[in-house]
Nucleic acid binder design. Structure first.
Lengths: 221, 221
DNA sequence: GCTACGTATTTGACTAGTCAAAATATAGTA
DNA sequence: TACTATATTTTGACTAGTCAAATACGTAGC
């Protein structure tokens, strides 16, 4: 049974790997994401390699094994189901959800998670639009593109926000930018580095920066 | 912020103190209830004394301070609200509830517990009939007496079961002995060491041992 | 080919919690 | 009072996870 520290490392390595386009995660990156010193990360990663959860490439970085990936998906499943519960059932605010879920996910049993999933009606995405892995470990995300890669004058529907930062999320929510909402993409300029949207119901215009738009996935229609 | 180990010790000391009629808890008792060696318990208790959660009387035992009692009540509150949730909302079986609650109670925030309490509709007892302390730390139990201290031919209502052992609970449940159920006390004999009950609806008779009956609290009517 | 800089690793030390086993105190009994 | 059984405490050692600081690589630029 992996300790909650191990679980946390594996989850972070998974998300960093995703972030980096499936290549090795360097120690600096990992240690920063974990909030520990680089030496600590090295020590831990060697241990993770011993138990075959990652493959460690000295002086280069680390990569999840299949076993590690399975654990990561189990953690993601827990995290996302718990987030959904906190938001939809207990009425948490978006900004509060993440920290509490982070602590709970290491304390729940498989039985708990399976019953919770049933109670929530088998949702396939969490409140941020992140897909929830099934109990067998399969995960499928809806077809979507980053908002900064869309053509102008398109009608788009927000699918997912790729960020856990509460500040970012609260800000986006205040612009009604959250999964399910629809907008018209008025303008997207690489030169000014901005994207302008208009909410399809309220017609209220919003302008956001290019890199923020990169963290917003939408489906075009 | 106390560690979950500290939280666990404090909770156990509280319940042992209750069990023992508010006198000092000896190390042997504590170490057995915690599942650690006596030496470990001594070391820990000294530390708990340092941080003023207990007062440690060498070679005699340990007693909670007011600070320790407050922490114990906060833990009991968490435990009982979580148990209620697992049983009533997620549909856990009585026998499964305890272990999962034990792990969760150290991982939840005060915000979580307060929202959960609200969601559950501010229950005042958990599924075993144990009273749930309020967020301010007050606790009040319904008037009740142990079943083995009742006179015969009385109509009694089960109020509370003073035991966490899943086996005991499942067995009692199979006899319909759980909070809210009503029985007629047919016979109570100190000589044979048995108590015989008859369920007031089904009229089915049940005979249980004297010490088991001591762990069943009822209200007479 | 050499140097400098940034990243990675190693080392030694620390904390919390634990155990096994030796040492000590207490209380009951003869 | 002396002895014994039992509870308690002490000691030394171990694990998981961490940090700070010294050290070692590797590569980009000269």
């Amino acid at each position: 049974m992996p300790s909650s520290t191990v679980e946390q490392y594996i989850k972070i390595i998974y998300t960093q790997q995703e972030h980096l386009g499936r290549s090795v995660v360097p120690m600096k990156r990992l240690s920063e994401a974990m909030g520990v010193t680089p030496g600590t990360a090295t020590t831990m990663v060697k241990h993770l390699d011993d138990v075959k959860l990652v493959s460690y490439h000295p002086r280069q970085g680390v990569l999840l094994t299949t076993k590690g990936e399975n654990l990561a998906l189990r953690m993601l499943r827990r995290h996302r189901l718990i987030e959904t519960f906190l938001e939809q059932v207990l009425g948490y605010d978006w900004s509060e959800v993440h920290t509490d879920a982070e602590r709970l996910e290491h304390a729940v049993s498989d039985r708990f998670i399976d019953k919770l999933e049933q109670y929530l009606g088998y949702p396939d995405v969490d409140p941020h639009g992140d897909p929830i892995p099934s109990s067998s470990g399969s995960i499928e995300s809806a077809i979507s593109v980053p908002l900064n890669a869309c053509g102008a004058d398109r009608r788009v529907r927000i699918v997912r926000l790729l960020d856990d930062d509460p500040e970012f999320l609260v800000c986006m929510k205040s612009y009604l930018i959250f999964p399910g909402q629809e907008f018209i993409l008025k303008n997207s300029s690489a030169i000014t580095g901005t994207v302008t949207l208009e909410h399809s119901d309220t017609l209220k215009p919003v302008t956001i920066g290019y890199d923020a738009a990169g963290r917003i996935l939408v489906s075009e229609r």
